[in-house]
Every structure is written in structure tokens, then in C-alpha cells.
Design a protein around this nucleic acid. Sequence first.
DNA 1: TCACGTCAAGCAGAT
DNA 2: ATCTGCTTGACGTGA
Length: 298
Amino acid sequence: MKVGYPCINRSLECRGNKTFRLKSYSEDRLIETVQNNLDCLRRMLKYNIEHEMYFFRITSDLVPFASHEVNDYSWQSHFKDEFKKIGKLIRKNDIRISMHPDQFIVLNSKKEDVVENSVEELRYHADVLDLFNLDSTAKIQLHVGGVYGDKSKSKERFVERFQKLDEKIKRRLVIENDDTSYTLKDCLDIHQNCGVPVLFDDLHHRVNSSEESLEEALQKTKRTWSEKDGIPMVDYSSQDPKEQEGKHAETIDKNDFKDFIERSRPHEFDLMLEIKDKEKSALKAVKILSDDERFYSL
DNA sequence: TCACGTCAAGCAGAT
DNA sequence: ATCTGCTTGACGTGA
């Protein structure tokens, strides 16, 4: 099991998700920002390697306005070598990579332009992973999208749109159960119809559940990941005790985490910790797991 | 230097 | 109707 955290390392000065306002767009500003973001990404990856965290989610803000019409600059070729170098670092250390396009990407939208923009944004994500020269175990995780008052029609629309995607995108796309609309069962249904792997989100499943036990959920999602997809990815977060259901905790709840690990045996997966204090909780999780392994190997 | 209004994009649910 | 949250606040104007 590899453990990771999303996008930002709060212990480092460096932020790899720098962006700017559309109004202040310029080619120079773009180049400068992407350079910064790639430098910081490299530093975060090195930090992760030093701390035995081998799963990382790369921010969608790596290239600002990547799929926006204002950006007609060929950042892909300008930063080609830079990407190649970082990709080498990732592959050499066998780091698992995911990306998570944000909420505006809605493949099953009823609006044509929203779909078109979404596909372009997915293409950007696939471009990034391709430029790193990563195989199809590097994934782009997406929520199913809107319901529009008719979930079964909206699920069908997702399947149709998925099938039309370029192979370049399709090979990397996975869907994740969300906290309001599409449950694990909905995602498994969609998998049945188009083969897209299902990424299990534990906290979303607690808040918006189709009633599977953790054991069952892990077993069922595992079957949706083929050899070329790699072992499943799973999202985990502790519930914030002070906030309403579904809110991510400020820091990891060690007992809840131990319990989760205990109950998830013997399933194999890579674990993304969606917790506000990021690498700090990931470090604690790595420690718990390594202590645990020692205990179990005695 | 700092406060704070605003930022490309969608949707659901709460208020 | 308007606001908030979402994987993550941070940009940038004005005082």
C-alpha cells in the first residue's frame, strides 16, 4: 500500500498550484508560473520520497488556463524536457500519480458547451500525465456529474459520453462515488456499462451510502480495476468531529484510521488521505502502517 | 504591509 | 434568491 496526500505540501515554502487572474494573462506570466509549479512539484516529490510517501495527487492548477481559449501557447513543447525529467523521478521511485479535475468538469451535463469544455480539460490532464511518460496506472479521477432530476438518464448520458472519449483520456479515467448524488452502487452500475474503473471514497460512502460494508465495497471496486489500471486507489478522510457530516477533518484521527486499516485487510490498494493538514497526517499514517507491519511480521 | 472583494468554469443542498 | 462546499485559497487592488 502506498500512502499519499493531495496537491499541496504545507511544510514546504513552495506551492505548486500558483495561478493568476484571467485578466492578467500573458504568455510570460504563464511560462513563469508553470516553471514555478513544476519546480515545486519536483520539491514535493523529493520530500515525499524522503518520507516514504509514494502516492501523490498532482494539482489541476499545474498549468493555469490550460484548456481555456486564451491560452494558445504550446506549453507542452516548451516544458517538454522539464516534464520528462520529473517523469523520470516519478518512475524511478515508482510513485503512483493521480489527478482530480475540479467541479466544473461535468461529462454528463445537458449543456453541449459544458461537455466540450470538460473534454478539453480532461485532455489537458491526460497531456500532463503523458508528458511525464506515465503508464495507464496514473489516473484521472472524476465524479459522475449532475443528476438533473433523472439519475438513470444521467447515468446513461455519462456512459455515452465516456464511450466517445479519445483512448488517450479513456485509459486514465476513473469515477469516484460522491457525497451527494452518485453512490458506490451507481458507480458500479456505470462500470458495468462502460468498463470505467471505480475509485472508492470512504467518507463519501459514509455520507451518501448504498449500504455496502467496507469489505464489500473494496471487493467490488477491486474487480473494476484491470491489470493495466494497476491496483485500486481509495480515498480516505477522517470526519471532522465539530462539523457537519462529510466535512474533512483538520488532522487524522489515528484510532479511526487504525480501525479503517484493520477492517480493510487483506485488500490491496493505494490510499489517498484527503485531510486538511496534508502531509502531516500522511506522515502519521505512514508511521502507523510501518509499526503495524512490524507487528504483523513478528 | 495588510485587509478584503473577488476569482473561468457546475451542481446540489442548505439557508 | 443567495450562499457554501467541493481535492486545495490565493490574487491583486486599494488603503
